[in-house]
Amino acid sequence: MRSGCITCGDQGVPMRIVELHEGEAVCVDQDGASHKVAVELLDTVRPGERILVHAGVAIGAVT
């Protein structure tokens, strides 16, 4: 995980979706670490897509 502060945008981490479950995705970050991420705030998500994750929640798509 990057250095920085969780309470600010610096900790918005780009991740790639590996698996999707209801409202939740298994994602990998740039170091290959796996994370569970809530994806309800995005319209549509598919495995393979890149998303921006902040505090365990996807807040945007990376296009």
Binding site: C8, V57, I59
Partner: peptide, 13 residues
Amino acid sequence: AIGFETTAPSTAL
């Protein structure tokens, strides 16, 4: 809860 609009959605959710 603390943070700007980046963090507020996670608290809201």
